[in-house]
Design a protein around this nucleic acid. Structure first.
Length: 863
RNA sequence: GCCUGGGUGGUGGAAUAGGUAGACACAAGGGACUUAAAAUCCCUUGAUCCUUAGUGGUCGUGCGAGUUCGAUUCUCGCCCCAGGCACCA
């Protein structure tokens, strides 16, 4: 055995062996229990970052552990390969998104391989390949047949200069991120998935996801946003039309004194037409259309609006209510119209005060009167109904039901529920995505592409246009087609591509049979592997990706393609990888090498000013606080990098980067290496001891017991809690104990027990540091990978403590301790406790009121 | 504002069922080895008090109360930090 631990040689050696022996390849095996472990697949952005390293290390530990526990483990990896960054990079480098993407995939694949992750690489997939997205298109057609997808007009961020649609994050303070010009809201016809049909089902099942973090479940519930209320119809004066509002406060309908419509509401322009308000209203609507959504969401956003010139009638009071259009009314929620009750809603109150509108109290607290003129804020608490006709005197909570019933009986409205969740707009006016398989025919309208014509291949020879505009609409050979229904040559292909969240909503099913040609997936394979037993990824996907995936699974279920409704049985959201930021008042964020000196007195290398040590924040290129895993791999190797990620914090918490911490991890591996190196000669011919502890004595007996305790501890830490940090610290304790056993080298059983200890360490560490463990395993006289071994088990008889330390308390305060045999009875313990000198001092002759004995732990004497 | 986490030594963290607070590691200090350094190994390390230096006293898990023989752990009220949602009618 080499004196020195050299990770580079060991890691490349084992990675080669794993690859050539196809160690990680799996197939369905009905005789074995399956375990599907999935980590969120990466976007191929260039190279892997610490977030990936952490995510995939956690997953790999579980995958390897489960495999050693005898499960048939599916552990795949692939690429979420469509998306905008590829287009941006292509424009920046005058290249092509496909070239950029595939090059990145090659780089990142080799980086992941150098981390030693146990992926079945034969299942690798990239969502940008026609083999993948053809099934996405196929599914789109199935959904279209069932009416699960539809087309409607909706607003997008549009940059006139660049002639392109912008994602929300590409809009900076209302301006285009690339050209800096004003972004406006443009109405476009787009494709939608009817996710809102599943709102109720998605919500109900939120409570049937016990393996999910509560945080994620509540975020989803909140996003779905079910609220109970009523729809109420308000007839428009001098018209047959009516405005329908959604409200959760139908108890306050008697206090509704005006109406607010969202600026985008179709009635706004119709109602003001021909009135003297027309010019003002249309100016306001135009101004709102130009306003960026993020500006509108700011807390201090001033409520404003314009009178439309029209009135509607309160159906219960017959009161004439002016109709306004107001910036705080949202077209996307409810019906886009709000019945305004200034007395009992803060926004309506602010608005009424600003424009001098009437305030009528309809709910009052039981103990005092309210005066509309004197109020400084709306009264939103519960109370007693007033000014509400036959409902006066009623508790307002009761009135909620009563008024809803009344509205229903008189056809003035009805009780209803409303969801915040809106249908999923999947159209992207982008190039680098899966084409939507539809055809627009002048004669027949929208016609689906016939199944046998799939895939509609994204032309990869297209070049991106100035400003990121999609070239698809300009490519005649792509767009020109004949109508499959009427045969007209005057048909045009849909040029929108699908949202990339669609690809990530079913990739885990495709992994089950990634090369299957006869369908979206091999049903038998999916039936065997799915659902995913453990999913691991960043909390940033807590809402959209996970909700879309849950929705898509329901679609597959309704289409009879899968048997389950929920794709992920257990979910772990790992914390972020963070590091302190360094900045200079003049030069902004600094790289660590731009700060000279140490500790408190660092200076900027550019200007000499003192460096400000900022908060510990998520690693981000813009903050110059990233660590490239590549440098870690070169300096310490994959095993140390993995070990640090696991040891520094439990997985769900944020991990703070620490160079010293990495070194500590490296030191530990060296320490184990030296220990094994010291003992190999002595233990070479020894017969491993794994018997009853009673055959041993003294320190060796203690060490032997410690091994079994460690096996138990590590097993439960991984199995029950995923707390790898404490699992590692348990092994560290064992290694420390093994060093202490050095003096025992010459005792008869020492080499035999030590051999057992070393093998246990190799087995227990193997999920975390697999190359290191495999090398040790072979040094210890075995062959092949530890992954093929069974996870070690512990002997119950080795866990029995010979002697227990019993703590003695007086009035709950620790006063002494003594050792006792495990089978000492309560009375004897009591006696021994009282005999303690220190204890006697604190009892000090006072009468003993009570004595509490907790078996095997403590005696508490109450005086 | 609402929701979800979290607050423990100089630092990351541990304490899994209310029962020895601070495991394990980092950092720091001291020592050994060495011509020297690195590496390694050993010791000390929450604060504080003491004519008894101990198997010692007191305080100590964000703050204040409560339940209990006993609370980092449970209950109530508050403060602070992080993340998410947010004009949702």
């Amino acid at each position: 055995m080499d004196e020195k631990y050299s990770p580079k040689a060991i890691e490349s050696k084992w990675q080669k062996i794993w690859e050539t022996t196809k160690l990680f390849k799996v197939k369905e095996d009905p005789d074995k229990e399956k375990y599907y472990l999935l980590e969120m697949f990466p976007y191929p952005s260039g190279k892997i970052h610490m977030g990936h390293v952490r995510n995939y290390t956690i997953g790999d530990v579980v995958a390897r552990y489960k495999r050693m526990r005898g499960f048939n483990v599916l552990h795949p990896m692939g690429w979420d390969a469509f998306g905008m960054p590829a287009e941006n990079a292509a424009i920046a480098n005058n290249s092509h998104p496909a070239k950029w993407t595939y090059e990145n995939i090659d780089t990142m694949r080799s980086q992941l391989k150098s981390m030693g992750f146990s992926y079945d690489w034969d299942r690798e997939l990239a969502t940008c390949t026609p083999e993948y997205y053809r099934w996405e298109q196929w599914l789109f057609l199935k959904m279209y047949e069932k009416g699960m997808t539809y087309r409607k007009e909706s607003f997008v961020n549009w940059c006139e200069t660049c002639q392109t649609v912008l994602a929300n994050e590409q809009v900076e303070a209302g301006m285009c991120w690339r050209c800096g010009k004003q972004v406006r809201q443009k109405k476009l016809s787009q494709w939608f998935f009817r996710i809102s049909d599943y709102a109720e089902d998605l919500l109900i099942h939120c409570d049937k996801l016990p393996g999910w973090p509560e945080k994620v479940v509540t975020m989803q519930k909140h996003w779905i946003g079910k609220s109970f209320g009523a729809e109420i119809h308000f007839p428009i004066e001098n018209s047959d039309e009516k405005i329908t509002v959604f409200t959760t406060r139908q108890d306050t309908v008697f206090g509704a004194t005006f109406m607010c419509l969202a600026p985008e509401h179709p009635l706004v322009l119709t109602l003001s037409k021909g009135t003297e308000q027309e010019a003002e209203v249309s100016a306001f609507v135009d101004r709102m259309a130009l306003q960026d959504r993020s500006v509108r969401a700011v807390e201090s956003y001033e409520k404003e609006g314009v009178f439309t010139g029209a009135y509607c009638i309160n159906p219960l009071t017959r009161r004439k209510m002016p109709i306004y259009t107001a910036n705080f009314a949202l077209m996307e929620y409810g019906t886009g119209a709000v019945m305004s009750v200034p007395a009992h809603d803060q926004r309506d109150f602010d608005f009424a005060k600003k424009y001098g509108l009437d305030i009528i109290i309809v709910v009052k607290p039981s103990d005092k009167e309210l005066d509309p003129a004197a109020m400084t804020e709306a009264y939103t608490d519960q109370g007693v109904m007033v000014n509400s006709g036959q409902f006066d005197g009623m508790d307002n909570k009761k009135a909620l039901d009563e008024i809803a019933a009344y509205l229903d009986e008189n056809n003035l409205g009805k009780k209803t529920v409303n969801f915040r969740l809106r249908d999923w707009g999947i159209s992207r006016q982008r190039y680098w995505g899966a084409p939507i398989p539809m055809i627009h025919c002048k004669e027949c309208g929208i016609v689906p592409v016939p199944e046998e014509d799939l895939p509609i291949v994204l032309p990869e020879d297209a070049n991106l246009l100035e400003g990121g505009k999609s070239p698809l609409p300009t490519l005649d050979y792509f767009t020109k087609t004949t109508c499959p229904k009427c045969g007209s040559p005057d048909a045009r292909r849909e040029t929108d591509t699908m949202d990339t969240f669609v690809e990530s909503s079913w990739y885990y099913e495709r992994y089950c049979s990634p090369h299957y040609h006869d369908g979206i997936f091999d049903k038998a394979a999916v039936d065997y592997w799915m659902p995913v037993d453990q999913y691991i990824g960043g909390v940033e996907h807590a809402i959209l990706h996970l909700l879309y995936s849950r929705y898509y699974t329901r679609v597959l279920n309704d289409l009879g393609l899968v048997k389950y409704k929920e794709p992920f049985t257990r979910l772990l959201t790992q914390g972020m990888v963070c590091k302190e930021t360094l900045s200079c008042p003049e030069h902004g964020f600094l790289y660590p090498y731009e700060a000279k000196g140490s500790g408190e007195n660092r200076q900027c290398t550019k200007c000499g000013k003192p460096v400000v040590v900022g908060r510990v924040e998520k690693m981000s290129k813009s903050k110059n606080n990233v660590i490239d895993p590549k440098t870690l791999l070169e300096k310490y190797g994959a095993d140390t990098t993995r070990l640090f990620c696991l040891f520094a914090a439990p997985p769900e918490r944020d991990l703070e980067w620490s160079e010293q911490g990495v070194e500590g991890g490296h030191r530990f591996l060296n320490r184990v290496w030296r220990l094994v190196s010291d003992w190999t000669e002595l233990t070479k011919d020894a017969v491993l001891f794994n018997g009853n502890p009673d055959e041993l004595e003294g320190d060796i007996r203690d060490l032997y017991k410690k091994i079994h305790e460690t096996i138990k501890k590590v097993t439960s830490d991984i199995e029950d809690r995923f707390h790898f940090n404490t699992a590692i610290s348990a092994v560290m304790e064992l290694v420390n104990a093994m060093y202490d056993a050095d003096q025992q080298k010459n005792t008869p059983h020492a080499p035999r027990v030590m051999k057992f200890a070393m093998e246990s360490v190799a087995l227990l560490l193997s999920p975390m540091v697999p190359h290191f463990a495999d090398e040790l395993w072979n040094i210890l006289g075995h062959s092949g990978s530890v992954l093929l071994e069974s996870w070690p088990s512990y002997r119950e008889d080795a866990l029995v403590k010979d002697e227990l330390v019993i703590v003695v308390q007086v009035n709950g305060k620790l006063r002494g301790r003594f050792t006792a045999n495990a089978d000492t009875d309560d009375d004897a313990l009591k006696e021994k406790a009282l005999a303690n000198e220190q204890v006697q001092k604190f009892i000090n002759g006072k009468p003993i009121k009570k004595t509490i004995v907790v078996k095997k732990k403590l005696v508490n004497i109450v005086v």
